[in-house]
Structure formats: C-alpha cells, structure tokens
Amino acid sequence: ELKKVVALYDYMPMNANDLQLRKGDEYFILEESNLPWWRARDKNGQEGYIPSNYVTEAE
C-alpha cells in the first residue's frame, strides 16, 4: 500500500525530474529514501520528485 499525502503548498518544478504540486491535491509516495526529496505520483499518473516538507500524510 502506497503512502498517500496531501500538498500543503503549490510547488512549481525546478527541473524535468520534479513533479508539480497543487495545494489540496493528493499524491502517492513511491520512494521516501531521497530525503528531503520524495518520489511521488499524482492522480494523472505523472511521477517525479517533490519537496517532502510541502506535503503532509493524508487522513
């Protein structure tokens, strides 16, 4: 089971490997080892790295 998180803030990608975050949207965490960058997937199936301090665990 993948960990689900909710974006606390918008995040615009800095490079091609990053994933855009939209405040309030849910994302699945694929990999937590790259702290403070986590690999995530959005609801459309896009994958990339996000800043872990921009998300919180979903209820």
Rank of each mutant, 00 (worst) to 15 (best):
P36W: 05
K23R: 09
E26H: 05
V6D: 02
T56Y: 04
M14H: 15
G45L: 08
R22L: 13
S33M: 11
Q20S: 13
R22Y: 13
D42E: 04
A40G: 10
N53S: 13
Y54C: 10
V55N: 01
Y54E: 02
Y49K: 09
P13I: 04
Y9G: 11
A7K: 00
Y27M: 02
R41H: 04
E31A: 12
K43M: 14
E32M: 07
Y54A: 14
L19W: 01
E26P: 10
Y11V: 03
D10N: 07
V6H: 05
E31S: 15
G48Q: 01
A16E: 14
M12Y: 12
G45C: 05
Y54G: 15
K3T: 06
T56D: 14
L8R: 12
Y27H: 01
W37Q: 14
Y9C: 13
G48Y: 00
I29T: 04
G24E: 03
E47L: 05
E57N: 15
E1V: 08
M14C: 07
Y54Q: 05
I29H: 00
D18K: 09
K23P: 02
K43V: 13
N44F: 11
Y27K: 01
D18W: 08
L35W: 12
W37P: 04
V5K: 03
N15E: 12
K43P: 07
D18S: 09
E47C: 07
N15P: 02
K43F: 06
V6G: 02
V55E: 02
Y49G: 03
K23S: 07
A16K: 08
P13G: 08
I29V: 13
K43W: 06
L30M: 07
Y49I: 13
Y27A: 03
D18T: 10
L8E: 07
K3A: 04
D25Y: 07
F28R: 12
E47M: 05
A7C: 04
E47F: 03
R41S: 06
R41L: 08
L2S: 08
Q20W: 06
V55T: 06
A7L: 00
R39H: 06
E59T: 12
S33G: 11
N34E: 15
G45A: 08
R41N: 02
R41I: 05
E32D: 06
A40P: 00
T56F: 05
K23D: 02
K4Q: 07
T56V: 14
W38M: 14
S52N: 11
F28M: 14
P36S: 12
V6C: 06
E32R: 10
D18N: 13
W38Q: 11
F28E: 13
W37N: 15
E47D: 12
N34Q: 15
L2M: 09
Y9F: 14
D25N: 08
S33P: 13
P36I: 03
M12G: 05
I50E: 00
L19D: 00
Y54H: 12
Q46N: 13
E1D: 06
Q20T: 10
S52Y: 04
S52D: 03
A40W: 00
L35Y: 06
Y49A: 10
V6Q: 11
S52P: 13
Q46H: 15
L30A: 06
Y54L: 06
K43R: 10
S52C: 10
L8C: 10
D42Q: 02
L19N: 01
E1Y: 09
A16Q: 14
L30Y: 09
M12K: 15
S52F: 06
E57Q: 11
N53E: 12
E31W: 06
L21D: 00
M12R: 13
V6M: 07
E57C: 09
L35S: 10
